[in-house]
Amino acid sequence: AELMTLTIVKGAQGFGFTIADSPTGQRVKQILDIQGCPGLCEGDLIVEINQQNVQNLSHTEVVDILKDCPIGSETSLIIHRG
């Protein structure tokens, strides 16, 4: 298992991935745009978004944080894999 830092840019259609609740937090459910989120894999656990720890937040709260990220700006994700 490892922590990885990824930088992704939000496009007009969003980030290009969906998230779902899991017992340990929000996991990447589906990658819709592989080019839009390079390095991200289905099943990755989202630990931080732009230096904000999201592991204890609800699904709705994490979705809102992602929605609030401006289109075209870089967003830093720390994910836990494995």
Rank of each mutant, 00 (worst) to 15 (best):
A1W: 01
E2V: 08
E2W: 03
E2M: 12
E2G: 09
L3P: 03
L3W: 04
M4E: 06
M4G: 05
T5S: 13
T5M: 14
T5L: 06
T5C: 05
L6F: 13
L6D: 02
L6N: 04
L6V: 11
T7F: 11
T7P: 10
T7S: 06
I8Q: 08
I8K: 02
K10D: 00
K10P: 04
K10Q: 05
K10G: 05
G11I: 06
G11N: 13
A12W: 09
A12L: 09
Q13R: 11
Q13H: 04
G14W: 03
F15E: 05
F15P: 09
F15L: 13
G16Q: 07
G16N: 13
G16S: 11
F17R: 00
F17S: 00
F17W: 11
F17D: 00
F17E: 00
T18M: 09
T18E: 12
T18D: 12
T18K: 14
I19L: 12
I19V: 13
I19T: 04
I19Q: 00
A20L: 04
D21Y: 06
D21M: 15
D21G: 07
D21R: 09
D21A: 05
D21E: 11
S22R: 14
S22N: 01
S22I: 02
P23L: 11
P23W: 11
P23N: 10
P23F: 06
T24G: 14
G25E: 05
G25Q: 02
G25H: 02
G25P: 01
G25A: 10
G25C: 04
G25N: 04
G25V: 01
Q26A: 14
Q26G: 10
Q26H: 05
R27M: 08
R27N: 05
R27H: 07
V28I: 15
V28G: 01
V28W: 01
V28D: 01
K29I: 01
K29S: 14
K29Y: 00
K29D: 15
Q30M: 15
I31L: 13
I31M: 07
I31T: 07
I31P: 03
I31Q: 07
L32T: 11
L32V: 14
L32D: 13
D33W: 06
D33G: 06
I34M: 09
I34Y: 13
I34N: 14
I34V: 13
Q35G: 14
Q35C: 05
G36P: 09
G36E: 14
G36W: 15
G36Q: 09
C37W: 02
C37T: 09
P38D: 05
P38W: 07
P38S: 09
P38K: 12
G39S: 10
L40W: 00
L40C: 01
L40P: 03
C41R: 11
C41W: 09
C41F: 13
C41A: 14
E42Y: 09
E42H: 03
E42K: 12
E42G: 06
E42T: 12
G43L: 12
G43N: 01
G43K: 15
G43E: 14
G43V: 00
G43F: 02
L45W: 04
L45S: 15
L45M: 15
I46L: 15
I46V: 08
V47E: 13
V47D: 04
E48W: 04
I49K: 00
I49C: 07
I49T: 01
N50G: 09
N50M: 06
N50D: 07
Q51C: 08
Q51H: 12
Q51K: 11
Q51G: 09
Q51P: 00
Q51T: 13
Q52N: 13
Q52Y: 11
N53C: 13
N53T: 10
V54H: 00
V54G: 01
V54K: 00
V54N: 00
V54Y: 00
V54T: 10
Q55F: 14
Q55M: 12
Q55I: 11
Q55E: 11
Q55L: 06
Q55D: 06
N56V: 05
L57E: 10
L57K: 06
S58A: 12
H59A: 07
H59C: 13
T60Y: 04
T60A: 15
E61I: 01
E61T: 02
V62F: 02
V62S: 02
V62T: 11
V63R: 08
V63L: 02
D64S: 13
D64R: 07
I65R: 08
L66I: 01
K67D: 15
K67E: 10
K67F: 09
D68L: 05
D68W: 04
C69M: 06
C69S: 15
C69Y: 04
P70D: 15
P70V: 14
P70H: 06
P70F: 08
I71W: 04
G72Y: 01
G72T: 04
G72S: 13
G72D: 15
S73P: 10
S73T: 07
S73V: 11
E74A: 03
E74W: 08
E74Q: 08
E74H: 15
E74R: 13
T75M: 14
T75E: 08
T75F: 11
T75W: 04
T75R: 06
S76R: 11
S76E: 10
S76L: 09
S76V: 10
L77G: 00
I78K: 05
I78A: 04
I78W: 05
I79T: 08
I79Y: 06
H80V: 03
H80T: 14
H80S: 13
H80C: 05
R81V: 02
R81Q: 09
R81K: 03
G82F: 02
G82P: 09
G82H: 02
